[in-house]
Amino acid sequence: MTSWIRFQSSEGGVGFGVLEDDSIAEYTGDMFGDAQPTGARRNLKDVKLLSPCVPSKVVALWNNFYALAEKLGKAPPTHPLFLIKPPMSVIGPDEPIRRPKAYSGKIAYEGELGIVIGKRCSDVSEDEAEQYIFGYTCINDVTAIELLNEDPNFAQWCRAKGFDTFSCIGPVIRPRADFDWRAAHVKTHLDETERQNYPLSDMIFTPAQQVSLISQDMTLMPGDVIAIGTSVGVGSIKDGSSVTVSIDGIGSLSNVLSARV
């Protein structure tokens, strides 16, 4: 099965390609357009993996799982509830989550599936939406949780979730045709302890519904990511602890929360 990745070579250049066992078949052009194999190969151990795409925005959903809605006492929404995370918040596998210098409060993890958009998408129907999904990836949607309601007059979702390094994405993009989200679980480990293990089949809005409805609110561009929301088991991270988000068929994404410097 195909897995698309982006990488930084030992020479410092950035490339992309298809992961094949322990090597990378390099491509040129546009991952979401005219990607062509170069014939060159690289050993996986000789490169640094980057976030597998460079989104212009991350659309992050809230209350999109029945189990969490029940736990919180919330009714299922009639339209996806979301916020926008900036591109500067995106990091890849094994990159550190940096604690904001001016913030000493709790930082939370949320293990999630990410939808990667493959082509410009605006006002599409649910029936059309599948063809705009390039593939799927793992996300850790990080939150400076004590900032959310710091001002009682305004919930600061974008500020709390938009810090640099607060959108961990990777390690690969699994193409839509190669991934059955209905059969998959999201598992999140904090250090060695499993904290989340929930079925994606419990989603309130399916990936196609999310793409369709969100595209009616804004144009989605190639490489944009929809973080589909999380379920039960969200918790806080101590400085120096690692969070690993794993989804069968995609892989595992690990990042460590670094202390302020």
Rank of each mutant, 00 (worst) to 15 (best):
N140H: 04
R159E: 03
I91S: 05
I84H: 14
E95M: 15
P76T: 03
Q131S: 14
F82D: 13
Y132W: 05
S104L: 07
V47N: 05
L68V: 00
S89W: 11
D141W: 11
M31A: 09
A108W: 05
L68P: 00
P152I: 12
N64D: 12
K85G: 12
A75P: 01
V47S: 05
V142P: 10
F134N: 01
S56H: 10
D94T: 09
R99W: 04
A160M: 07
Y66R: 08
D141G: 13
A144M: 12
N153K: 10
L68M: 12
V54H: 05
C53A: 13
G105M: 02
I84P: 07
H79G: 02
L113I: 03
L148E: 07
P76E: 08
L61P: 09
L44R: 02
I117M: 14
C158I: 11
F32A: 08
P87L: 04
D127T: 14
E150K: 15
G73D: 13
V59D: 08
F154D: 09
R99F: 03
P86D: 09
V59E: 10
I139G: 02
P152N: 06
D46N: 12
G135P: 09
A67V: 02
V142H: 11
E128S: 09
P86S: 15
D151L: 13
Y136V: 09
L61V: 04
G118T: 01
K85E: 07
K48E: 15
N63F: 02
A35M: 13
A75C: 01
I117Y: 06
A40R: 03
V116T: 00
P76R: 06
Y103N: 06
D141H: 07
I117N: 12
L50P: 01
P93E: 14
E112Y: 06
S122W: 03
L148G: 11
S104M: 01
G73I: 04
V58C: 13
Q156G: 06
Q36P: 00
A160L: 08
G111W: 04
G73W: 00
F32V: 07
D94R: 02
A75F: 12
V142K: 04
E95Q: 13
A102L: 13
D34F: 00
G114S: 06
D94Y: 11
K101Y: 11
G114V: 06
E70S: 06
N64T: 13
M88Q: 04
E146W: 06
V47G: 14
R98W: 09
E146S: 09
S122R: 11
I133V: 05
V90S: 10
T137I: 08
E112H: 01
A60W: 14
G33S: 01
N149I: 01
D123Y: 15
G135N: 11
I97Q: 09
S56D: 11
A69S: 06
L61I: 10
I115Y: 01
A102Q: 12
V59A: 06
M88R: 07
K74E: 08
V58Q: 08
P93C: 14
